[in-house]
Design a protein around this nucleic acid. Structure first.
Length: 153
DNA sequence: GCCAACGTTGGC
DNA sequence: GCCAACGTTGGC
């Protein structure tokens, strides 16, 4: 069992949208960054825990949790010429991009703003803090637990 | 909307 | 295979 952080722009997909999808869950598609893709394809497993992080909005930070309900499969959008995620170089034999399905598991009592995460010594090695521009990233068990504790306060 | 960070593309 | 140009992410 591993832990992850997914960034999303709430104007596009918010935690509420994930919640509204209930147990049938949501396809997490449109990942077009190789580093994020490799995590998706090679490491995300059913049952893995996910922090949902809102970016590009007023309240930037971790808002809730979700879990993986289906491991990586070829992202159908790459084959759809009408999709903004279409990739002419991808074929069904050799898909380039992958997606997973996730479902809502909870909303944090308090949104944990990036500003707070940044100054927390226990989180100084977090990928979120050390590297920008990565929409799917690993979270250590220690970080996962620490953030859960912060959220419970 | 600005701009820094950084990944990707493409000419050579 | 180098590296400049370019595009995207994402905080502020």
């Amino acid at each position: 069992m591993n832990y992850w952080l997914f960034k999303t722009e709430p104007d596009d997909i918010s935690l509420d949208d994930i919640k509204a999808a209930k147990t049938k869950g949501l396809r997490w598609d449109g990942i077009r960054n190789y580093q994020a893709r490799n995590f998706l394809r090679d490491q995300l497993a059913i049952g893995d825990g996910i922090f949902i992080y809102h970016s590009q909005c007023k309240a930037v930070g971790i808002v809730g949790t979700a879990e993986v309900t289906r491991a990586a499969y070829a992202d159908p959008a790459q084959f759809d010429p009408n999709s903004k995620y279409f990739d002419a170089k991808a074929t069904t034999d050799r898909p380039r991009w992958f997606c997973v399905d996730i479902r809502y598991t909870g909303t944090l009592k308090n949104l944990l703003p990036l500003s707070q995460l940044k100054v927390d010594p226990a989180l100084s090695d977090m990928v979120l803090i050390k590297q920008g521009r990565l929409s799917i990233q690993p979270v250590t068990l220690m970080e996962w637990r620490h953030i859960q504790t912060l959220a419970a306060d």
